[in-house]
């Protein structure tokens, strides 16, 4: 039984992990559906003020 393979991947959840996975997949040549429940991507990391070690603003 030959199986059709779809060259697309769905990433469910638009936090930092979802965004990184989506970028890597897209750079790798796959169409990505990034599905996010809320109105914007960013997840919990967007609520942090600064991140260790470089004290970059988490935005």
């Amino acid at each position: 039984m030959s199986q059709e393979m779809i060259g697309a991947v769905m990433v469910v959840g638009g936090g930092i992990a979802g965004m990184q996975a989506a970028l890597d997949l897209a750079d790798g040549g796959y169409y990505v559906y990034l599905v996010e429940r809320s109105g914007a991507i960013g997840g919990a990391m967007a609520q942090l003020d600064k991140t260790f070690p470089t004290n970059d603003c988490s935005m």
Binding site: I6, V9, V11, G13, G15, A17
Partner: peptide, 15 residues
């Protein structure tokens, strides 16, 4: 409805 080859679940955390 969409068709995809794989799915990655990253729904994150709740404090």
């Amino acid at each position: 409805t969409v068709r995809v080859g794989s799915m990655i679940l990253t729904p994150g955390l709740k404090p």
